[in-house]
């Protein structure tokens, strides 16, 4: 296990060391000490590393991740795992706004709550939130799955494209063009797998599915008020 003290050794050294593992990983297990809410921790990784952040992280932790497993033992600031391509980011505490924004792939797990705009413009990432999510989550979500074991805030899935949303608790309101949809066997299968990988014991049958009504896909004057 490689230990890196962020407070004494600085951010640039950390990311450079982790990114240098991309070609041929020399060390696969890393521990980041004293994160103290710092920004851009473990960004741009591209190797199958296990990185554990011992404490709360600031903005964009695990940003654009490829292949790596990043675990935050604390809360994460805005934009955790933004634009993730592959790999896994786990936040053991709460996540702030924009968790998993524009992510293309991989799995983001938030053990606590996520605040607003969770999964905004998601493009294929899977996100599982054990707690609740805030307003405008999955705004313009294009692909992937967002699973919420708790409740969802206002305007869930506004202007959604083809992403799949699963919520166990209540939904304060659905956004424009987002509707409840039938839960079919293939969805239950998908959900079973996601919950398992996300270390959640929630039951797939307890969830409801939401997705796009596809009414905004081509402009129609009768829907103009919704733009």
């Amino acid at each position: 296990m490689q230990q890196y003290d962020l407070e004494t050794d600085g951010l640039r050294g950390l990311n450079a060391a982790l990114q240098a593992q991309a070609a041929e990983p020399e060390h696969t297990a890393w521990e980041v000490l004293n994160p103290r809410g710092s920004h851009a921790i473990a960004v741009g990784l591209n190797a199958p590393l296990d990185v554990t952040v011992r404490g709360p992280a600031g903005y964009y932790c695990g940003g654009m991740n490829q292949q790596a497993n990043v675990r935050v033992q604390g809360s994460a600031g805005p934009g955790v795992a933004e634009n993730m391509m592959s790999g896994r980011v786990i936040v053991e505490g709460d996540a702030s706004q924009y968790a998993g924004a524009t992510g293309h792939g991989g799995l983001l797990v938030i053990k606590g709550n996520a605040s607003s705009r969770c999964g905004i413009s998601m493009k294929g990432i899977d996100i599982v939130v054990h707690g609740n999510i805030g307003h405008m989550s999955a705004f313009m979500a294009q692909g992937g799955s967002l699973v919420v074991c708790g409740d969802a805030g206002d305007a869930l899935g506004d202007s959604i494209y083809e992403a799949r949303l699963f919520v166990r608790g209540s939904v304060k309101s659905l956004g424009t063009d987002c509707v409840e949809k039938e839960m079919r066997p293939e969805h239950l299968d998908l959900l079973t797998g996601l919950l398992e990988r996300a270390e959640s014991d929630a039951k797939p049958e307890e969830f409801r599915r939401y997705g796009s009504a596809r009414k905004l896909y081509n402009f129609d004057v009768d829907h103009a008020d919704e733009y």
């Binding site: 809360s75 505490g93 706004q97 805030g134």
Partner: peptide
């Protein structure tokens, strides 16, 4: 504005930390 502002407060590790709702 950021969690960084709170890290030096006494007992922050066990405080209830949340994001105010809109």
């Amino acid at each position: 504005s950021e969690y960084r502002a709170l890290v030096s407060l006494p007992g922050i590790d066990t405080a209830r930390v949340w994001e105010p709702e809109p």
